[in-house]
């Protein structure tokens, strides 16, 4: 464990807690894409399949449980909670996210580190996580105005993978044979997808204006 990875995990934890807190306290998920939340639940479900078989540390298992629990409860709130579900604008959140999953699965079957059931699904979860934010970014373009909490959620979510990139650089230079091209490229693509959001988020913060994404 290094400071970059810890910062990444804490930023990631903060992003899901911000979203869960927003939905739980104001009982609204306006501006939040259910499609992205469903993709994240699938990302964690396929990435943490080994939670029962391979034990790395208490921290590792605890965080896996938190990420699994929070992502599935966010999906539950948005789909089934009597008050929250009414605030979900389904006719705006129309990204065909199942079309994202198929290419990720095909790519995982083609490019992976080992051709085993767990490893292919783990690689699938990496590719899927890289694109999981797309429905949310599309929704933002459509709804144009976003509330602070949703903006903070996306900012933290994008930031965590940025910290992970620093972690991979650190590990590359400090651990012999630590080379994971697939993880690195997927992580880089993921972070780059947030680039324009970060740009407009920073502009709105600098000019102290409401965050507006261009149409």
């Amino acid at each position: 464990m290094n400071i970059f990875r810890l910062a990444g995990d804490m930023t990631h934890l903060a992003s899901v807690l911000v979203l869960l807190l927003k939905i739980h306290t104001i009982k609204s998920c306006a501006g939040v894409s259910l499609k992205t939340q469903e993709l994240y639940a699938i990302v964690f479900a396929t990435r943490y399949l080994d939670i029962l078989t391979s034990f790395v540390s208490i921290y590792n298992t605890l965080m896996k449980l938190i990420f699994l629990g929070s992502s599935f409860s966010i999906v539950w709130y948005m789909k089934y909670h009597k008050t929250v579900r009414r605030t979900y604008d389904r006719d705006q959140d129309t990204f065909r996210h199942w079309f994202l999953m198929l290419p990720c699965l095909l790519l995982a079957l083609l490019i992976h580190e080992k051709f085993t059931f767990f490893e292919v699904l783990w690689t699938f979860s990496l590719y899927l996580e890289a694109v999981a934010i797309l429905p949310q970014l599309v929704l933002l373009q459509r709804t144009r105005n976003i509330d602070n909490l949703t903006g903070q959620y996306i900012f933290l979510l994008g930031g965590y993978r940025g910290f992970y990139i620093l972690n991979w650089i650190y590990r590359y230079f400090t651990e012999p044979h630590y080379v994971h091209w697939i993880t690195w490229i997927a992580g880089l693509v993921q972070t780059l997808l947030y680039a324009d959001f970060f740009y407009y988020y920073f502009l709105s913060w600098k000019n102290n204006k409401k965050l507006q994404l261009p149409a």
């Binding site: 995990d9 391979s54 790395v56 590792n60 896996k64 990420f67 972690n167 630590y178």
Partner: peptide, 10 residues
């Protein structure tokens, strides 16, 4: 790289 190290990250 040994098995566990492969996926010791979240």
């Amino acid at each position: 790289n040994n098995e566990a190290a492969a996926h010791d990250e979240l």
